[in-house]
Design a protein around this nucleic acid. Structure first.
Ligand SMILES: [Mn+2]
Ligand SMILES: [Mn+2]
Ligand SMILES: [Zn+2]
Ligand SMILES: [Zn+2]
Lengths: 139, 139
DNA sequence: GCTTGACTTGGACACTGTCCATTGTACGAT
DNA sequence: ATCGTACAATGGACAGTGTCCAAGTCAAGC
């Protein structure tokens, strides 16, 4: 039983086979799958699970704060079960590999008050881009 | 004649009515329009301009480094003619207003060497989110 | 075991963006 | 000024991602 599934059950979720496999697929470190990747892997265990259910379930997990959406490209959103420790992402521009990284300071504090235009700034999203070692080596 | 159009002509662009109106629509400060918004405004001056041409033209401007793509939400890409001064964006989570902002330091330097995993890091994208004064006031 | 409201399903639909064959045109050459 | 040609514009088909809905199914409490 994954920690994620445990937390969801504590929140009163009705436990279904579909939700179980989605939670299981998302279990682990450095996981950043698209909804359709989640669907493909979930279908490996539960062949008839539908796309709509995967989208619904992921959306609910995001609403509950147990999964975060990550947008590192303009294609599909990615779903990240590492929701309880703020972090940023480092993306290879060539192969798409994504690594969790941590900045040396709080990026929010880098925005001076006179650059906030009266906004109540509550969140910042940082994506670093470059080439991973393999791609930089021409692999 | 916009500065943007001037620069494009210097690069040997064949000048067409369509490219002119797209460049004119993109002229100005704090402009962050989607492709379809550009198309709608361009069609105000040149009714028969096609969606494909707007997409082609914007893509060419991006390739030439005269316009930058901005992804502040998971809907449409936005096109920013402010391509010659690096900056970040501050977005209202409620109404979508986008402001250009400048951080106090270079965000790239905030990623320590031991968090780079051997990547050649060349770029960083920072998006601040919050509520603009109007939305915070409940307007 | 029933009952019931929550959950799942498949498919239609919307939005953004790409592609391509055809038609049109800007611009250098004459 | 006209022409020829390579480059550009067009519109419609198509693809990827995500949402929505009506109908069927099921988990969980009684
Ligand atoms: Mn992550
Ligand atoms: Mn901008
Ligand atoms: Zn790579
Ligand atoms: Zn606002």
């Amino acid at each position: 039983m994954s920690d994620l599934l445990e937390r969801l059950r504590e929140r009163g979720w009705r436990m279904t086979a579909q939700r179980r496999v989605v939670a299981e697929v998302l279990d682990g470190e450095h996981v950043h799958l698209t909804a359709d990747e989640v669907h493909a892997r979930a279908a490996g265990r539960l062949p008839e699970i539908s796309r709509a259910t995967v989208y619904n379930t992921l959306g609910e997990m995001v609403s509950l704060g147990e999964v975060v959406e990550v947008t590192t490209d303009r294609r599909a959103k990615r779903y990240d079960p590492n929701a309880h420790r703020p972090h940023q992402h480092l993306v290879c521009a060539r192969c798409g590999t994504i690594r969790d990284v941590h900045t040396s300071g709080d990026p929010l504090s880098q925005l001076p008050a006179d650059e906030r235009f009266g906004f109540t700034v509550s969140d910042v999203e940082v994506t670093y881009r470059g080439l991973c070692p393999d791609c930089a080596a021409g692999a």
